[in-house]
């Protein structure tokens, strides 16, 4: 991948909103979340670092947790988004779309200029 550093920063910045997005209207336990995020290309390189992120979202009141027994293994900590988490996601989504549109526009102009 080109501009590896840029994407590392982008991933770092957007990961928590991807987590919040996965938790809208749905509860998930940690392992499940980690595997789901792993499906997003290149989003998670170090799975273990998701847990500190989840702990921070909990401290910030973006998610709530509860322990539940599981049939197949150890008890699971389930995460769900709070209203605050939902609001943060909505705000980020609006900003992200604006940002993406302007970056796309400029990149397009650059590429058209290159072909001339």
């Amino acid at each position: 991948m080109v501009a590896e550093k840029v994407f590392t920063q982008l991933r770092r910045g957007t990961l928590e909103y991807c987590v919040l997005a996965l938790l809208q209207g749905e509860e998930r336990y940690g392992f499940d979340l980690v595997k789901e995020l792993g499906e997003i290309d290149g989003m998670v390189t170090t799975e273990g670092t998701i847990y500190p992120l989840l702990a921070r979202l909990r401290r910030e009141g973006m998610v709530e947790t509860s322990w539940r027994e599981s049939e197949s293994g150890p008890p699971r900590r389930y995460y769900r988004s709070t209203a605050e988490g939902g609001q943060a996601l909505a705000d980020f989504t609006a900003d992200w779309e604006r940002f993406r549109t302007s970056v796309d526009g400029i990149l397009r102009r650059g590429n058209e200029g290159r072909r001339k």
Partner: peptide, 20 residues
């Protein structure tokens, strides 16, 4: 608190992965 949380989370991740 952070230490306990982290160790519990990573330990259960490993157990889940083994159960899976």
């Amino acid at each position: 608190e952070r230490r306990t949380d982290l160790i519990v989370d990573v330990t259960s991740h490993i157990e889940e992965a083994r159960a899976a």
